[in-house]
């Protein structure tokens, strides 16, 4: 099963690069001209994101580097132990929605410290693979069209993150605990 998924993922992009232009050609699209016309937007969209990304990454960077994030993890520790979440993975849980690269670093650290086949190592792996960098996604997606008021989108994203954290802990306890 895993092998099949790995193969699928390896072939997906070459397949799209083959399939879309050839089908377009068969349907009478001037493929190269259409490609260039679409690609033109790439730069505009990327540049438009910059102010949003600067604002969000600066706040996250200060929060993390100052040690405020570790304090928060420390304060939450007793509550989360009650819910059965091991304190070792808490910094990862807090960092995951904020910074993709930062969370990956923490997950890699946990894996090398506790071993990839330990309970903590496996739980950290599932957590890292399970949630998205919600703040980054919201910042980039809303920023690209100039939206400033997110309504309930942030709450929705965080609900998804918390659900996947709780599910990851429960599933790992059943399967590996």
């Amino acid at each position: 099963m895993t092998g099949l998924i790995l193969e699928l993922s390896r072939w997906a992009i070459p397949f799209l690069l083959f399939f879309i232009p050839s089908l377009g050609f068969l349907r009478g699209v001037r493929v190269y001209e259409a490609f260039v016309a679409g690609a033109e937007d790439g730069f505009k969209v990327a540049v438009k994101i910059i102010p949003f990304l600067v604002g969000m990454l600066v706040a996250i960077g200060v929060f993390r580097a100052s040690g405020a994030m570790d304090l928060l993890a420390h304060a939450l520790d007793p509550v989360l132990r009650l819910a059965g979440i091991p304190g070792e993975v808490l910094p990862l849980a807090i960092l995951r929605p904020l910074s993709g690269g930062g969370a990956l670093g923490v997950a890699a650290e946990l894996i090398s410290e506790y071993g990839p086949d330990s309970f903590i190592g496996r739980l950290a792996s599932v957590m890292q693979g399970s949630t998205d960098t919600t703040f980054y996604v919201l910042t980039v997606y809303f920023g690209s069209v100039g939206i400033r008021r997110y309504r309930y989108a942030l709450a929705l994203g965080l609900i998804a993150d918390v659900s996947s954290l709780l599910a990851a802990v429960a599933i790992c306890r059943i399967m590996f605990g």
Binding site: I20, L23, G24, A34, V36, G38
Partner: peptide, 12 residues
């Protein structure tokens, strides 16, 4: 976005 434009024009 370039590929997507081809896919759009082809009706995909």
């Amino acid at each position: 976005l370039g590929l997507l434009r081809i896919a759009e024009e082809a009706g995909l």
